[in-house]
Amino acid sequence: MSEPLFVIVAILTLGGGLGVVATRNVVHAALFLLLSLVSVAGIYLLVFAEFLALVQVLIYGGAIIIVLIFAIMLTRSQEYPRISDNPQWPLAIVAGLAVFGVLAASFLWNLPPASEPEGPGLAKIGESLFTKWAVPFEVVSLVLLVALVGAIIIAGRAGDRE
C-alpha cells in the first residue's frame, strides 16, 4: 500500500528538484523548490515521523521559501541573464552522475536488514531533545541568535551600522 504512495511522492520530490536546477526563471525555481520541500515532508510522513513533517513544512515552506522569494525580488537586475547556466554545466552533469553512482553503489552494496519503519512520537522526541540532546539544543539556539545578528549586520544599510 505504501509503495505507490512512495513512488508518487518520490516523483514529486525529484521532479521539483529537477525543476529547481533546470529552469531559467528564478521565481519558477523558487516555486519548484517549494514543491520539492513539501514532498519531502510527505516522505517523512511515510516513515511515521509526523512531527518532523510538520516542522519541515513550517520552517522550510513557511519561512525559508518566503525569505528566498524576498531575496529574489530584492536582487533583480535590469537585464535578465540570457543563460542561467555556467560554462561548466556539462562537466557538472558528469560530476553529478558520478557522485550518484558512488553513493548508490555504497547504499546498495551492503543491504541493511529488512525492517518496518516506526515513528517515535512527539513525546519521545521532546524527551530526547530536552534531556540527552539538551546541550546541542541550547547551542543551536545560540547559532540562530548569532545568525540573526550577523544577518542584520551584513545586510544592514550603510547608515544602520551603528
Partner: peptide, 22 residues
Amino acid sequence: VLSAALFCIGLYGVLARRSAVL
C-alpha cells in the same frame, strides 16, 4: 537511493547554476 538522487540533483545545481540565489 532517493536521498542520493536528490543530493546529486542539488549538487548539479550548485555546480552548474549562475545566480547565487539559485
